[in-house]
Design a protein around this nucleic acid. Structure first.
Lengths: 333, 333
DNA sequence: TTGTATGCGTTATCAT
DNA sequence: ATGATAACGCATACAA
C-alpha cells in the first residue's frame, strides 16, 4: 500500500505538506504543490480512510436501516439517498433492521457512521439515547409509530392523503371502505392506518375493524389474505379497499383476478406510494404518490446541514399527490 | 466517547487485557475477564472500528456496485448479500456505478473494504489492477462482458437457459423470435444476448438483427420502443419476443395491452430473471429464474473463504429454472 | 496471566 | 511556507 510517507519521500517534502496538498490547504507554494501532486499521481496514492476517520472522527459514511431490500418503496428512497450522498462524497452502509438484533447496531456503527437514516423503524429509547450521546443524528423517512424527540422524521401528510383518497372514493359512491395493513403494532404503516381511520371519521363514514380491516405484510401474504376473504364471503363487506402500500394492493389485484372478481367493477382498489409497478398492473392502480427520490435527496441534505453546519434536524412534511388510475371506479350498487 | 482506556481504568486493569477480553483471547483469568466485562457493560463501551481497521488492516466491510437500485434484480441479489454478510459480521457499502466516475472507486474504497462485489460492471483493466495490487478481491455476479483474470464471477449458464427457452417456444410453433436488450455494448446483458444468438443458431432458427432486435434499457423505455414498433409495423417480424430482463418484458406487455395486441394469442413474450412481479402481471410472465438470494449467499461465502482462508475465488455456474407461465403460447399461424 | 510499548496512516498544532 | 511531532483508539509483540 502506498502511504503518505511514500509520497513525501518521493516528492522530497515532509509528510505535513502532503497532507496540506491532499486537503487543499492554501498555504502551500504552487511549485511544491505540483511536486506533491506529481508524486501522488506517479505512486497512485490514495489516503487511507480508516486512518483519516480515526483522526478526524468523521466517518464519511451514513448508515441506512432497511426493513426489506425487496420492497421497491424502500429501495426507491435509497436510490435518492445514494445519489445525493455520493455527491457529498459520502458512502452508505445498508443494513436490514432485525428487531432482535437492535443491540448490535451500536457495535456495527461505532466509529463508522456520521448519521443513521431509518426507514420507519422504531428504535428503543435506550438505543436512541446511545447514539444521541455520541451526537450521531438519527433521521427517519416516514413517521415512526412512537415518537422520540431525538429522532426527527420526514414524511407526507398521511391524514391529508387519506382524506383525499377517501373523498375520491366517496364521490364514486363508496360508503364501505376497507383497509389492509401490516399486522405488527410498531410497523410504520400503523401511522397510515391511524390517519385512514381519522379521515374516515372526518368523512362521516363508519369503519368496522372486525370485518373491514385486513392484515397482511407483503404482496404474497396480501394475495393469500384476500383470497381467503373472497372464499369466505359471499358478499364483501366493503366496495373499496385501500392498502397501506402498493405491493399489497398488487397482491390483492392478483387475488381478485384469479377469483374472477372484476376491478373496479366489483371492487375498487387503491394503494399507497406509487411504486413503478403501480402503472403496469391490470388494471393500473390508483394510489398516493410518495416522492421517494426527492425525499431521499432532502434527507441527505438535512443530515449534511446538520453535520457540516450544526443545523438542527426537524420534522418535515412533504407534498404527496393522488394518482387516479383504473383500479378505482363507481360503486356497483 | 468511551474508549478502551476508560474501560481499563474503570476495571483496574491494563489496556491490553481489555483488548484480550474484547477479542476473546483465552489467556485471561476468568475473574479479570468478568471484571472487564462488567466495566464494558457499565460504561457502554464499543470498540472504535476505525481504529481497529487501521490496526488490523481489515475493514469488516464489502463494497457493492450497483447499476440501479431501482432494479429488483439487483436489489434481490443484494438482499442475499446483505443477509449473509451480516451473519459474518460484515457490513455492505452500496454504490451506484457511474462509468465516468470509475476513478473515484479507488478513493472511496481505500482502507474501507475487504472486497468488492460487482453486479455485472466492466471495470477498466487499470482499475482492476489497482485493487489487485491491494489484494482486494473483485467478484462479479453475472458475467462481465469483457473478461479479466482477476475478476471472477458467478452466473447461470445463459447458453443453456436460452436454449431451453427457445426450445419451449419452438415447440409452440414459433420460428421468428425477437430479442430485446440493453443498447450499450459493455452492459452485462450483452452476455445474455450473445448466448441467445448462439442458441438460436444451434436451434436452426434465423435471427435478423435489423428487424428482430429491439434496444431498450428499462421498463419505461421498453414500453416506448415496443409501442413504436407496433405503430410502425402492420405485421410484426416475430411471433415471440424474449427480453433480457423481466422489467423490459413487463414494459413490453404494457405496450401490447395498450395497443390492443393480445399476449400470448398475437405475440408470445418471455423475460429473464423471474422477479417477483413476473408472477403478477396480466398475463403472468414466462421467464428464466435466476436464483438471486442464493447467489447472494454463495458470493459472500466465496469472498469470506477468500479473506479468511486465502481460498482463491473461481468462476461458478449455478442452476437456473425455466418458469412457464401465461405469456407464451401457440404461434398464431 | 498481565502490563508496557510500538505502530497502523492520518490530521493538526506548534515551531522554525 | 514547511517540518517535527503529538495524538486518534486499537492490537499485539514482548517483557515481566
Amino acid at each position: 500500500m502506498v502511504t503518505r510517507d511514500d509520497v513525501a519521500r518521493h516528492a522530497g517534502v515532509s509528510v505535513a505538506v502532503v497532507s496540506y496538498v491532499v486537503n487543499n490547504k492554501n498555504n502551500v507554494k504552487e511549485v511544491t504543490r505540483q511536486k506533491v501532486l506529481k508524486a501522488i499521481q506517479e505512486l497512485g496514492y490514495n489516503p487511507n480512510l480508516a486512518a483519516r476517520n480515526l483522526k478526524t472522527k468523521k466517518a464519511g459514511q451514513l448508515g441506512v436501516l432497511f426493513n426489506s431490500l425487496a420492497n421497491p418503496f424502500e429501495t426507491g428512497i435509497s436510490l435518492g439517498l445514494e445519489e445525493r450522498a455520493r455527491q457529498y462524497g459520502y458512502s452508505l452502509i445498508f443494513h436490514t433492521f432485525i428487531d432482535t438484533e437492535e443491540e448490535k447496531l451500536k457495535t456495527i456503527f461505532m466509529g463508522r457512521t456520521d448519521g443513521i437514516l431509518l426507514l420507519g423503524q422504531n428504535l428503543k429509547a435506550e438505543t436512541i439515547d446511545y447514539f444521541s450521546r455520541l451526537e450521531i443524528p438519527l433521521y427517519s423517512i416516514t413517521t415512526p409509530v412512537s415518537a422520540h424527540p431525538y429522532v426527527k422524521y420526514m414524511d407526507i401528510d398521511w391524514y391529508e392523503a387519506m382524506l383525499c383518497l377517501i373523498t375520491h372514493l366517496k364521490k364514486l359512491g363508496h360508503r364501505h371502505i376497507g383497509f389492509m395493513t401490516n399486522t405488527s403494532s410498531d410497523h410504520h404503516h400503523q401511522v397510515r392506518y391511524r390517519f385512514f381511520a381519522e379521515a374516515m371519521k372526518a368523512s362521516g363514514l363508519v369503519f368496522q375493524e372486525k370485518t373491514m380491516l385486513l392484515k397482511a405484510e407483503n404482496l404474497e401474504s396480501a394475495y393469500q389474505v384476500m383470497n381467503k376473504k373472497l372464499c369466505a364471503n359471499r358478499q364483501l363487506p366493503f366496495s373499496a379497499m385501500i392498502c397501506a402500500n402498493d405491493l399489497m394492493a398488487i397482491g390483492l389485484l392478483s387475488a381478485c383476478r384469479d377469483f374472477g372478481l372484476s376491478v373496479p367493477e366489483d371492487l375498487s382498489v387503491a394503494g399507497c406510494e406509487d411504486i413503478l409497478m403501480a402503472s403496469h398492473t391490470t388494471p393500473t392502480l390508483t394510489t398516493v404518490r410518495f416522492p421517494r427520490r426527492e425525499i431521499g435527496f432532502k434527507s441527505i441534505e438535512a443530515i449534511m446541514r446538520h453535520t457540516n453546519s450544526r443545523i438542527q434536524l426537524q420534522n418535515e412534511k412533504i407534498d404527496f399527490e393522488l394518482i387516479i388510475r383504473q383500479s378505482t371506479g363507481k360503486a356497483s350498487k
